[in-house]
């Protein structure tokens, strides 16, 4: 596998405020890479530098072999290979879904078929609806359609599922996984930890402009090594036990109850628990 994005010691200041204070990361081709962090952590600034929207104050950046900060006349050829789904937009209100997706397909040299993209994001029934009549979630799906219409090699998604109902989110995840299956590299910023867990191959947690940790969702913050909590009901009371070897303990309990253990749960810290501990620890 080769590297799609390489960032070394990236820095960006707004006045005296250091929004990005030395971030380094490397994203492989074909992986889904999630960037997590609280509001104001520097996620959007970092991603917008990668997308070529913002200048940086220091560090080196390479996206598909080019520096997004100095594209010049090569910008068009470079943008032909990337797809961007921005945070909330409200443009093109008077156009229909189909008009917009068809129009954007003309910008790219190897676009996907606009009608199948509309189908893929689940907007077929709304294809002739004016954009201003779409719900928040439908609008977001249109944003995604416009992000993928050019068959991008890298797709940037900035909080893509904000405003989705649970069903639409599941459908969206399927869509992202199908793009990954086609070989698309996906950079995702999100507030939803279950989303990162369901999609990401690796997660970078950013806080106060710095990387806290980069790991797989399963191993972030030593999560795979964390102890499990076993709880059950005995004599009408809830008992719980922190266990280093939950399988053995459950078998023992089963022996004691001679079969069914009432209200048994075995939990390990969720990605959210781990994440919140990490962010807290930073403060």
């Amino acid at each position: 596998m080769s590297t799609a994005i390489e960032v070394l010691d990236l820095r960006k200041k707004y006045g005296e405020y250091e929004a990005v204070a030395g971030i380094s990361l490397s994203i492989e081709q074909g992986e889904i890479y999630a960037i997590l962090g609280p509001n104001g952590a520097g996620k959007t600034t970092t991603v917008e530098i990668l997308e070529g929207y913002r200048d940086r104050d220091g560090g080196t950046v390479s996206v598909l072999g080019s520096d997004p900060g100095t594209l010049g006349i090569h910008g068009s050829a470079w943008r032909n290979r990337i797809g961007i789904v921005l945070q909330s937009t409200s443009d093109a209100a008077e156009l229909t879904v189909a008009e917009t997706v068809h129009h954007f397909s003309h910008y790219y040299t190897k676009p996907k078929d606009p009608d199948s993209v509309i189908e893929l994001v689940g907007l077929s029934e709304k294809r002739d609806a004016k954009i201003r009549t779409l719900s928040g979630g439908q609008r977001r799906r249109l944003d995604v359609a416009l992000g993928i219409i050019g068959s991008p090699e890298i797709l940037f998604l900035d909080e893509p599922t904000t405003g989705f109902d649970p069903e639409a989110r599941r459908a969206f995840w399927e869509l992202i996984l199908s793009l990954k299956a086609e070989g698309t590299t996906i950079v995702l910023t999100t507030h939803y930890l279950d989303e990162a867990e369901a999609l990401a191959d690796r997660v970078a947690v950013i806080n106060a402009g710095r990387i806290v940790e980069i790991a797989t969702p399963a191993t972030l913050g030593g999560r795979h090594l964390a102890k499990a909590t076993i709880s059950w009901n005995e004599d009408g009371k809830t008992h719980s036990k922190i266990s280093e070897n939950p399988t053995e303990d459950v078998l023992e309990l089963a022996k004691r109850f001679q079969g069914d253990i009432p209200e048994l749960t075995v939990t390990r810290p969720s990605l959210e628990d781990i994440y919140l501990t990490m962010i807290e620890g930073q403060k």
Partner: peptide, 17 residues
């Protein structure tokens, strides 16, 4: 208005000249 509603930013992110 188009700058505020994100239309221009979206166009800037495409290969359109």
């Amino acid at each position: 208005i188009e700058r505020d509603n994100g239309a221009l930013k979206r166009l800037r992110g495409t290969p359109m000249s």
